[in-house]
């Protein structure tokens, strides 16, 4: 099933006009409202949205008011698809009141996160009335807000399925199976990149990468035959190279990006000067 079937916008996408806080913007029909707001620099706080991943609606911070028939109804802007004449407001006294309460809950759930602290401060929330989580052994350093972006990027983009939600309710955490090392981890680090609160820890000591937060999973790094630098996880490189057709020559495959670039540049000079001997058709 494609997204189009879901939102019922088959065929060519139409331009529509939407109103945000009384100002009109043009957007594509079926676009996510939060996406429009980000593009147009309209501020809506959010933690669990990423344009390339399926919408989740978990963090509840992005709620806006949709005005219809004289009434304003709250809904999450990351799951709201744009239609002609859509009229939303991003801040009403009600929205602000609930947003502040949610931020207090986040301060209690992820007390060690600087990102959360400053987000909360933007809305005037500097303290929480609630009991703060303090888990000394938390592999995510009491910073995780369970936005699920890491799980989604691992499953949807990398096809890894290394991590998942474990348990339910207030006991929910993100972890590897049995909280142990997961040999199928590619060590790509996309999870850490996408994490809004920088909760995921990765270390690169020498010839291996340690996914500290993911059961200390160890991933071997590939060494560049030219400069000797450890530059990328071995199995990640294999997986990516396996997908490239026609395949790269062995010679340049093992090189780190820096050395490869230098090498290719050199080849080009040689090609231009008429020396074909070192060239490679595949590149």
């Amino acid at each position: 099933m494609t997204d189009e079937e879901v939102c019922g916008t088959k065929g060519a996408l139409n331009q529509v006009t939407v109103t945000i806080n009384g100002r009109e913007y043009s957007a594509e029909e079926g676009e996510i409202l939060l996406g429009v707001a980000i593009r147009e620099n309209v501020e809506i706080p959010h933690l669990c949205y990423e344009a390339s991943l399926s919408p989740s609606g978990a963090c509840r911070l992005c709620m806006v008011g949709v005005r219809k028939k004289g009434k304003t109804e709250m809904t999450t802007s990351c799951t709201l698809r744009v239609t002609e004449g859509l009229d939303v407001v991003t801040e009403t006294p009600e929205i602000l009141r609930h947003r502040k309460m949610l931020l207090e809950l986040y301060l209690a759930e992820a007390p060690k996160s600087e990102v959360i602290k400053s987000l909360a401060a933007r809305y005037g929330v500097t303290k929480t009335r609630f009991f703060k989580k303090a888990e000394p052994a938390d592999p995510l350093g009491n910073k995780c807000v369970l936005c699920g972006l890491c799980v989604r990027v691992c499953n949807e983009i990398m096809g890894g399925g290394v991590i998942s939600f474990v348990n339910r309710g207030p006991y929910t955490v993100v972890a590897t199976p049995f909280f142990g090392e997961n040999p199928i981890c590619l060590g790509c680090g996309a999870c850490a990149q996408v994490c809004p609160t920088h909760a995921i820890e990765i270390e690169n000591p020498g010839d291996e990468r340690i996914m500290t937060s993911w059961g200390k999973t160890r991933v071997k790094l590939r060494q560049c035959p030219v400069c000797g630098k450890y530059y990328a996880p071995d199995i990640l490189a294999e997986t990516i190279y396996a997908k490239i057709t026609p395949p790269l020559s062995q010679q340049i495959q093992d090189m780190c990006p820096d050395c490869r670039r230098k090498y290719l540049a050199k080849q080009e000079v040689l090609v231009k000067s008429g020396d074909f001997s070192g060239g490679n058709n595949h590149v």
Partner: peptide
């Protein structure tokens, strides 16, 4: 048992993390 979960994961070609998520949910 953990071994069965691992065996099931291999047989159905479903990541172990997915099965672990289910049994803890």
């Amino acid at each position: 048992p953990r071994e069965l979960l691992e065996m099931l994961s291999a047989k159905l070609k479903i990541p172990l993390s997915h099965l672990y998520s289910l049994v803890t949910f």
